[in-house]
């Protein structure tokens, strides 16, 4: 466990809490891609199946529960409680374009051909593309609420910090997981464009609106 990892997990948790607070307080999920949130719920479900079999630490177990809860509550709020405010026609990214390649790849490229390992690999690959429906929705609507950009910022920051964590672990423990690192780099690249807009627009107090 190192500082990058802790900051990364805190940033990830903060992103989920920002999203939950935004939806709960504004009683609306306008501008939020329900599909991305469903993908995140699938990511955590397929990744944390070892919740009851592998015990790493209290921290690890508690955080897994919290992440699962946040993901499912968010999906419930979007498709359940506030479904009337759900912007369905703009959330039109075809999930099969993500799920099929990711499923195929997790059967081809994995550490070992066991169910748990394949599901873990699937969750890693899926997480790297899970934000695409949300970014696609923003590019389609041409703008995003400021609170949504803060959510995306912390979500992107979490993975950038995880990259630093992997460099750190490689230096200190000579340990690295190629699958996680490669897909982590891909995931962070997807955020670069957003980071640029966030820094040049949102941090200057402007609304994030795409040209």
């Amino acid at each position: 466990m190192n500082i990058f990892r802790i900051l990364g997990d805190v940033s990830h948790l903060l992103a989920m809490i920002i999203l939950l607070v935004k939806i709960w307080r504004s009683k609306s999920c306008a501008g939020i891609s329900g599909k991305s949130q469903v993908l995140f719920a699938i990511v955590f479900t397929s990744r944390y199946l070892d919740l009851f079999t592998n015990f790493f630490s209290i921290y690890n177990t508690v955080m897994k529960f919290v992440f699962l809860m946040c993901a499912y509550i968010t999906v419930y709020l979007i498709y359940g409680k506030f479904r009337k405010t759900f912007d369905n026609e703009n959330d039109s990214f075809r999930l099969e374009f993500l799920l099929i390649p990711v499923t195929g790849l997790s059967f081809l490229e994995n550490q070992s051909f066991t169910p748990l390992e394949i599901l873990w690999t699937f969750s890693i690959y899926l997480e790297s593309v899970a934000i695409l429906p949300q970014l696609f929705m923003i590019s389609k609507t041409g703008e995003a609420e400021t609170i949504t950009t803060h959510y995306l910022f912390f979500l992107g920051l979490y993975h950038a910090l995880y990259l630093a964590n992997w460099i750190w672990r490689y230096q200190t423990e000579n340990y690295y997981d190629q699958i996680a690192v490669v897909s982590g780099v891909v995931q962070t690249i997807f955020y670069c464009d957003f980071f640029y807009l966030y820094v040049t627009k949102v941090l200057k107090g402007k609304k994030l609106s795409l040209p």
Binding site: D9, M63, Y175
Partner: peptide, 10 residues
């Protein structure tokens, strides 16, 4: 040892 470290991240 490497094996025990696998998947210890969130």
């Amino acid at each position: 040892d490497q094996e025990s470290k696998r998947h210890d991240e969130l």
